[in-house]
Write a protein that binds this DNA or RNA. Structure first.
Length: 228
DNA sequence: GCGACAG
DNA sequence: ATCTTGTCGC
């Protein structure tokens, strides 16, 4: 039977969503958007992929900056509790990502997450959730729009266009490659938009996605085969 | 009331 | 995210 929902997943429990919305509204007060005070030497990229319906594989890739040489790659495979619901992605994926993070020998100065940061209805995209939980600078690089409006940036690499939501600029739509769909860059926590945009651009060597998230995505596919 | 909707 | 073939372009 069809649920008349885009992903054909069971309708989320209304009470749970109300509860999680409350939680995000409270977490919102703790978000700090500021110019990071670190000397960026180590950057990490993370991403998750699914194995079946209720199992998730998360990956963290640690690399040097600005050289972008890989130092470590770790992963964790675990169960997923909740279905995917736009705006609540972190509750579904963050737990497993945090487990993978624990396996890193060295910790990064900044984490680049595959998804949005504050460019979210309540400023709580997955990058922001991770930043708050780890008390660490984070930024998000998403491939698709979640909320807000923007004008298409020029088709040349390096072009940027602000993403606005409720009168605020919450992300930059950045063209990382000529004539290729742009990415949405936003600060997560302990980070600001300008720095995040600059770092995302510096990490976008020859692909649409910046190296940290691109490699995390790549290794997620590799490790997935080992698990199966 | 009608769409829009990260991974 | 995931299910999937061939195909266009650097």
């Amino acid at each position: 039977m069809a649920y008349f929902r885009r992903h054909d997943t069971p309708p989320p429990d209304p009470n749970l969503l109300r509860e999680l919305t409350e939680l995000q509204n409270k977490m919102q007060q703790r978000i700090i958007i500021q110019k990071p005070d670190f000397d960026l030497k180590l950057i990490a990229g993370c991403d998750s992929s699914f194995i079946g319906k209720d199992s998730i594989l998360s990956v963290f890739v640690l690399m040097t900056y600005p050289e972008l040489e890989v130092l470590e790659k770790v992963w964790h495979h675990g169960p997923v509790e909740l279905p995917y619901v736009p705006g609540f992605l972190a509750f579904r994926e963050a737990p497993n990502l945090l487990e993978a993070y624990k396996k890193l020998d060295q910790k990064p100065d900044l984490i680049m997450v595959d998804g949005h940061g504050i460019s979210h209805p309540r400023r709580l995209g997955i990058a922001t959730h991770l930043g708050l939980h780890l008390d660490k600078p984070t930024m998000g690089v998403a491939k698709k729009l979640l909320v807000g409006k923007y004008k298409e940036p020029a088709t040349t690499k390096g072009s940027i266009s602000p993403l606005e939501y409720k009168g605020e600029v919450i992300a930059n739509v950045l063209r990382t490659k000529d004539n290729i769909k742009p990415v949405f860059v936003s600060p997560g926590h302990l980070m600001d938009l300008e720095s995040a945009t600059e770092i995302a651009f510096n990490c976008a060597i020859k692909h649409k996605l910046p190296e940290p998230t691109r490699l995390a995505d790549h290794y997620a596919a590799v490790f997935k085969k080992e698990v199966k």
